[in-house]
Design a protein around this nucleic acid. Structure first.
Lengths: 124, 124
DNA sequence: CTAAGATTGAGAATGAGATTCATTCTTATC
DNA sequence: GATAAGAATGAATCTCATTCTCAATCTTAG
């Protein structure tokens, strides 16, 4: 994968923020530096960077958001403003509670494990 | 909300399966009983039943799935066949490990808390 | 039974994301 | 540095899940 100007800039945008922008938001910020970049290129490059392990995609009910921090950590999604916040990686339920910033109120917790089921593991 | 034939059947379909069907899959099963039901009605009713708290929507990278069990519990998403499996509600990391059926391999864990952030809570 | 209004099916509209393709970059090799 | 091969780009188009529209139909309170 070539390190083109647009890919470098997409990575730079994602690295300098903790706000988990959408593809549209990435486009807006990339265009501050490279005004001719297309939305198609942003989607194409986010996908390639994700496949290369440099970018993480977070799928929520509010849409897909992107993150340059690929180490696993929990997220907090605000149901009012749709922003996504990082939480410290908790090792216990108590640590999870303490990881929550002041004034944040939790209404739901989604725990999703991903992998392969036994049927799929057995066939090939 | 009126309890129409199509709503009753959508609920019946979701209640008799643990397979977390997509809207298309719900349509197919509903049509076994009511052949003239439209996909629009399925989407419309899934949304209303969700707002009424009778149905839960699960958003994954593979798409939206529906569940008549609204009590919170973790899910396992197979990245090969895209099926969604229920796991028992774990209280500790050890219980989570034990909740995993034989032969299931985990590659990622997503923990997502939802609610309102401090900024949104303070304004109104 | 009837009227009022909620719900329906069919089809059109929407929008996020993927794809296509001629043109433009990158970069390995000289 | 120059060059050639193929990867990447922007613009436009396409796809497909979901939502919307609307005239016709069904539900249900009274």
């Amino acid at each position: 994968m070539r390190m083109t100007r647009q890919r470098r800039e997409i990575l730079a945008v994602l690295s300098r923020t903790r706000s988990h922008p959408s593809a549209e938001e990435v486009l807006r910020q990339v265009r501050a530096t490279l005004p001719r970049v297309s939305l198609g290129s942003v989607y194409r490059n986010l996908k390639m960077l994700r496949e290369a392990g440099l970018v993480r995609e977070i799928v929520t009910a509010e849409g897909r958001r992107y993150d340059a921090v690929t180490a696993p950590h929990p997220h907090f999604v605000c149901e009012r403003c749709s922003r996504v916040f990082d939480l410290a990686r908790p090792l216990t339920a108590g640590a999870l509670r303490r990881a929550l910033p002041q004034g944040f109120a939790v209404s739901q917790i989604h725990l999703e494990l991903r992998g392969t089921c036994s049927e799929c593991a057995s066939q090939r």
